[in-house]
Simulated assay, not measured.
Amino acid sequence: MVKSICVYCGANAGVSPRFAEQARVLAKVLVERNLALVYGGGNVGLMGIIADEVLRLGGEVTGVIPSALVEREVGHTGLTRQFIVKDMHERKAMMAQLSDGFIAMPGGMGTLEELFEMLTWAQLGIHSKPIGVLNVDGYYDSLVGFIRHATQQGLVRPQHAELMMVESEPEALLRRFI
């Protein structure tokens, strides 16, 4: 049973106002479904927006942030639970342990790295939790195309490419999780 969702997203808000809008919509859907948010623990960018909205709506938020990033990502001080960990490896492992599924919203290199680590772990059988991409305004279209290309080239197996669920609306993505 899915009880908590890890959301990977940018420490920046990006240029499109739709990114922030969809972060708020995802927060609303999580709270409506009584799903806790697990995320990177920051108070900036899309991370801060989704955490603040889940809290505003009465939901539960767990942040996991390395001590070196507490100042850089401005560690959120109003969370339900906040874990300050040694490094990024410990952060990702703890976030994975605390979560029943993973969603990547628009984000940068860190978001991509976290998404691909969870996909790789699923491919290797380390976990069998759902993994999704919230493709706001086509943000991930090129990535989806690349995965398709890698599959056509025989470097990604079709069943592994299918591990990454892609939807443009939070409700549709979470429906596929449960």
Rank of each mutant, 00 (worst) to 15 (best):
R33Y: 00
H76W: 09
E117G: 07
V61R: 10
E71M: 14
T77C: 13
M118T: 14
V74F: 08
M118R: 11
G41Q: 09
M105P: 02
M109V: 15
E60K: 10
D100G: 13
D87M: 02
R56M: 03
G42L: 05
V64L: 03
R81K: 15
E113F: 00
E60C: 08
M105E: 01
G107K: 10
L46M: 03
L98K: 03
E73K: 13
G45V: 04
V85Q: 01
V70T: 14
K86V: 12
I84G: 02
L79S: 06
T80Y: 07
N43M: 11
V61P: 07
T80V: 15
D87A: 01
I49E: 06
Y39L: 08
V61Y: 10
I84Y: 04
L79N: 09
G63K: 08
Q97E: 15
M94T: 15
L35P: 01
N34F: 12
V64M: 06
G45E: 00
G78C: 11
G40A: 08
D87R: 01
D52C: 05
G108H: 05
T111L: 03
H76V: 12
E90G: 07
E60D: 08
R91C: 03
L69Q: 10
V44F: 01
I50C: 02
V74W: 07
L115G: 02
L98F: 05
V64S: 05
P106K: 12
G41P: 11
E117T: 09
T120C: 12
L124M: 13
G110K: 15
G107T: 14
K92V: 11
A93V: 13
D100H: 12
E117M: 02
V74Y: 08
G101I: 07
G101N: 04
G78M: 11
G75S: 09
M47S: 03
K86H: 13
L112F: 15
E113Y: 00
M88N: 02
D87H: 00
T62A: 06
L119H: 11
T62D: 10
M47N: 02
G108S: 04
L115F: 03
Y39F: 15
G48C: 04
L124K: 09
R91Y: 04
T111A: 06
R72V: 14
Q82E: 10
A68Y: 14
E60F: 15
D52F: 08
H76R: 15
E114S: 14
G58S: 01
M95R: 13
A104N: 04
